[in-house]
Simulated scan of single mutants.
Amino acid sequence: MTQWKEYSIQINREVSEAVSNIFIEAGSQGVSISDRADFLNLPEYGFDTLWALDEKDFPADGIVVKGYFSVNVDEEEMIANLKEKIEQLKDFGFELGPYTVTAHSMDEENWATAWKKYYHPVRITRFMTVVPDWEEYEPESGDEKLIQLDPGLAFGTGTHPTTRLCIQALETVLKGGETVVDVGTGSGVLTIASALLGAQSIHAFDLDDVAVKSAKDNIQLNQLDAEIQVQANDLLKGIDLEADVVVANILAEIITPLIPDAWRVLKEGGLFVSSGIIEEKKTLILDQLKEQGFDIQQVLQMKDWIAIIAQKPEDN
């Protein structure tokens, strides 16, 4: 049986996406995140199917991000490299706080399948339920929409507060027939939700080729290939589109340079939905959106996470 090394980084929640990217850039074969906020974040809607979570699997402080590498990788060198990359995050304004980096060996079977026992159908908004591909599930009402998802280890299950906030925002702004651009698509959950909510043309981008494949696989699961185009790209650099909605569930530090390009590709009256923003960064992003010329339509919050709906004004 193939052996793998699991490297675990326990660190401040703010840097979860950045640390995930460090693992992916280092060649990790998968990334998982254990966040106590996910354990404590019970759904707002009355239903019985939930994550079968065990509290002891979640850190009391911060988060644990895990990456998986071949046992042939030198452990001391990998730990030193991970620590160096983490320290470099300070140059981008991240506050790291105390953190630890550890490693242990595990079998491929445990790595590839054990996590699935925690993942069950979850209604993430009043009208939208994420269903893992290996689970059977029947809608509880006629207006319930199902997102079939095989998230893999790297790109999440669609149940994180930032994703929920984005889908709530999309339910608010999509009326049908829109062109939507999803920046940093990950598992593709927001593109699938957009299609189910009536968007006509959807373009999804992610910098990571593995994420692009993950999104394409999930889009195929939902039989939405015709509505959604996915490709690798660095945010919206070089993209020439006219969008009704741009949605980005990424770090605040990445939203900042994205704002001018979101403005560029949006039609007059178009909407920019941004999430992945911790409460401490809310004012920063709001100020930058206003400086660009956006009108703030709505600010959504779930625990410590923020999503913003901003509109590009029409030229009167």
Results as ranks from 00 to 15, higher is better:
164 R>G: 05
17 E>I: 05
200 Q>Y: 04
155 F>N: 04
27 G>S: 07
256 T>E: 15
100 T>R: 11
242 E>V: 06
119 Y>T: 04
229 Q>R: 11
277 I>V: 13
75 E>H: 01
298 Q>H: 09
94 F>S: 09
85 K>F: 01
226 A>L: 08
22 I>R: 11
67 G>K: 07
224 L>I: 04
127 F>M: 11
255 I>Q: 13
271 L>W: 02
134 W>Q: 10
55 E>D: 05
140 E>Q: 14
34 S>G: 01
184 G>W: 00
204 A>V: 08
52 A>Q: 12
136 E>Y: 03
156 G>M: 09
68 Y>D: 07
42 L>S: 15
173 V>T: 08
48 D>V: 14
44 E>I: 03
263 W>V: 05
119 Y>E: 08
251 L>W: 00
189 V>N: 03
225 D>R: 13
171 E>Q: 15
204 A>L: 04
19 V>P: 04
113 T>V: 15
160 H>E: 12
123 R>S: 14
302 M>V: 05
275 S>W: 00
2 T>Q: 12
247 V>T: 15
106 M>H: 01
285 I>N: 13
10 Q>F: 00
174 L>T: 06
11 I>G: 08
42 L>P: 00
68 Y>L: 07
234 D>V: 00
72 N>L: 13
243 A>L: 03
268 E>D: 11
26 A>H: 08
261 D>I: 02
171 E>S: 02
49 T>A: 11
95 E>K: 12
158 G>I: 08
41 N>E: 13
137 Y>K: 05
57 D>N: 12
239 I>C: 07
150 D>P: 03
128 M>Y: 05
